[in-house]
Each structure stands twice: as structure tokens, then as C-alpha cells.
Simulated scan of single mutants.
Amino acid sequence: MPYIDKTYYDETYGGVPIADVDAFSRLSKKASDIIDQITNYSLTGVEFTQLAQFLQDQVKKATSAQVEYMVSMGGDTATHGGGYASVGVGNFSYSEGDSTSKLNREQQRTSPAVIEYLKPTGLLYRGVNTHDSSYSC
């Protein structure tokens, strides 16, 4: 289930216009999947509306930023990390020479703003939770 709807994206976040509702629906689902992957699926199985308002807001902003990023990077194809910056066939070669050529596939597929929105939430933490009462030695 997407973390945002078109109304939130357009009116609250103020993202770049996406006229096609079906395209927005596809992109918001893919962006939400990327957020789940980045957060190691820590939001799955949790009632989103029961989370602290700050967490909800940051996840919605991150999802919106990812949708906007995917639109700017070419839409649906952006979920796979962009294309090639350099291609060669025989004696022919072509290089785009853009700044994304120095980024790895993961960096190309995710907006830097997504990480910044999620940093203060704790959802990016990969360590061991030492406060889990269900764990016993």
C-alpha cells in the first residue's frame, strides 16, 4: 500500500506535476516499495496511522521525494538505477558524461532527499535493539 496519495503529493508536498493519475499510482507504489527496502521493511505489519505523527510525516515526505526523483529520472525506469553513462560497440563509443555516472546503481535509484528525510526517524538503523524485552540471555 502506498504511503502517499495524489492529494498529499500535490497539495502538501508540492511535487512536480504528474497529470496522469495511473502514472502517479504506479510511481507512488514503487516509491513506497523503495522506502520499505531502505528501512529494511520495519514499517510492514505496522498500522501506519498508529505511528507517531513525526514518523508518518517523514515517511510521506520521503515517499514524495522518491516519486519526484523518479519522474525527474525518467519515470518507471528510474526504479532500476538508471541507464548507462558509457556504451561502446566495436570502434564506436558514447558517453553521457553526467554526474550520475560516478554513482552506483543504488545511489542512482534513490533520491538523496529520501535518506535525509528518514535519518532522524531511526528507521535506517541496522544495529541490534538492546531494549527489546522479548530477548533474554
Rank of each mutant, 00 (worst) to 15 (best):
D10C: 06
E11F: 05
T12F: 08
T12H: 06
T12Y: 08
T12R: 06
G14W: 01
G15N: 07
V16R: 10
V16A: 11
P17V: 02
P17F: 06
I18A: 04
I18Q: 09
I18G: 04
A19I: 05
A19C: 10
D20A: 04
V21S: 13
V21H: 06
V21D: 15
D22R: 12
D22M: 11
D22N: 13
A23L: 14
F24E: 02
F24W: 09
F24V: 06
F24M: 05
S25N: 15
R26Q: 04
R26T: 01
L27R: 01
K29M: 03
K29Q: 12
K29F: 09
A31Q: 00
D33V: 11
D33A: 10
D33I: 02
I34P: 00
I34H: 08
I35P: 02
I35D: 10
I35Q: 03
D36N: 15
D36C: 14
I38W: 00
I38H: 02
T39Q: 14
Y41V: 03
S42C: 14
S42R: 08
L43K: 05
L43Q: 05
T44W: 05
T44E: 11
G45Y: 02
G45E: 12
V46K: 07
T49P: 04
T49V: 14
Q50T: 15
L51G: 07
Q53M: 12
F54C: 11
F54T: 15
F54Q: 03
Q56Y: 07
Q58T: 05
K60W: 00
K61D: 14
A62V: 08
T63F: 03
T63G: 14
T63W: 04
S64C: 15
S64G: 14
A65V: 01
A65G: 15
A65T: 04
V67E: 02
V67R: 04
V67S: 01
V67W: 00
E68I: 11
E68T: 09
Y69T: 10
M70S: 12
M70W: 03
M70Y: 00
V71N: 01
S72A: 08
S72W: 02
M73V: 01
M73H: 04
G74R: 01
T77H: 02
A78V: 03
A78M: 03
T79F: 06
T79D: 10
H80T: 14
G82A: 04
G82Q: 02
G82H: 00
G83K: 01
G83M: 05
G83W: 00
Y84S: 15
Y84K: 11
A85W: 00
V87Y: 02
V89Y: 09
G90E: 05
G90P: 03
G90M: 04
F92R: 09
S93C: 06
S93R: 06
Y94I: 13
S95P: 08
S95Y: 01
G97I: 11
G97D: 06
D98Y: 00
T100Y: 12
T100H: 04
S101G: 15
K102L: 14
N104L: 02
N104H: 01
N104K: 09
E106M: 12
E106W: 08
Q107M: 03
Q107L: 11
Q108N: 15
Q108L: 13
R109M: 13
T110G: 06
S111Q: 07
S111Y: 05
